[in-house]
Design a protein around this nucleic acid. Structure first.
Length: 221
DNA sequence: AACTCGGGGCA
DNA sequence: TGCCCAGAGTT
């Protein structure tokens, strides 16, 4: 995919998709951080369901510490990986209180030093809470970047670096938002909906034609 | 690079 | 039923 096509891709996604916002529910950088920690390998629906009651019980790191691991678990039991996530949340809150004045640090290294926070979570917080032009590569974006030829790469870090390079500056802050929505609702992992894709004509995916045809016969049948 | 954690959603 | 989910940590 060349520079012209990339720009066209972003322009179309920007025009068609809703204003940039997370689908996770949060009211502060702290709540965002916790929600993103919980969202690893989980659906946003299940996360929002859990945080609705969790944040009512505790919306600050101090209050979260008062809940304790078992208290947190009681709210997040229906989310996958909840055991390690509950422990990580408490450890993270302790560090926030002891080393960062109870605030979420606006610093990549400090964020990634928090238990349960990796490259992706740090990027989301930096972008969404602090407005920095990071691109958080998750499974959706990794798939879209490779499938369309927008920014191919074998590792998440490779895709992230390439995305930052090939994304025009004016799109860089919101690219994450558009790419993830596109991957989630159109360029899905299984049975991508190429027939109703806004950018199918710009996409390099070899199986695109087959996918369109399959969708057509599936609807006809 | 491969493995593990993990309940829920969806075809 | 099998595959996937807005990943991170360990080996």
């Amino acid at each position: 995919m060349n520079a012209h096509k990339r720009r066209q891709m972003y322009e179309r996604l920007q025009a068609a998709l809703p204003a940039p916002t997370t689908e996770l529910h949060y009211r502060s950088p702290f709540e965002l951080l916790i929600a993103v920690i919980l969202s690893a390998q989980a659906t946003d629906k299940s996360v929002n369901q859990a945080t609705a009651t969790l944040f009512q019980a505790a919306s600050t790191p101090q209050a979260m510490l008062a809940l304790g691991v078992d208290g947190v678990k009681a709210h997040v039991r229906r989310i996958g990986l909840f055991n390690s996530k509950a422990q990580n949340i408490i450890k993270t809150c302790r560090i926030l209180v002891e080393q960062h004045g109870g605030q979420v640090p606006r610093d990549r290294a400090a964020l990634e030093a928090l238990p349960g926070v990796g490259r992706k979570t740090a990027n989301v917080v930096l972008n969404t809470a602090f407005g920095e032009p990071t691109i958080a590569v998750d499974t959706h974006i990794f798939r879209v970047a490779n499938r369309t030829g927008l920014a191919p790469g074998k590792t998440v870090r490779q895709v992230e670096d390439r995305l930052l390079k090939v994304t025009p500056p004016e799109f860089r802050h919101d690219a994450h938002h558009w790419l993830i929505l596109h991957g989630r609702y159109t360029c899905t992992a299984r049975r991508p909906r190429c027939g109703q894709c806004l950018i199918a004509d710009l996409c390099d995916w070899p199986d695109k034609a087959a996918a369109v045809a399959a969708a057509g016969t599936a609807q006809a049948a």
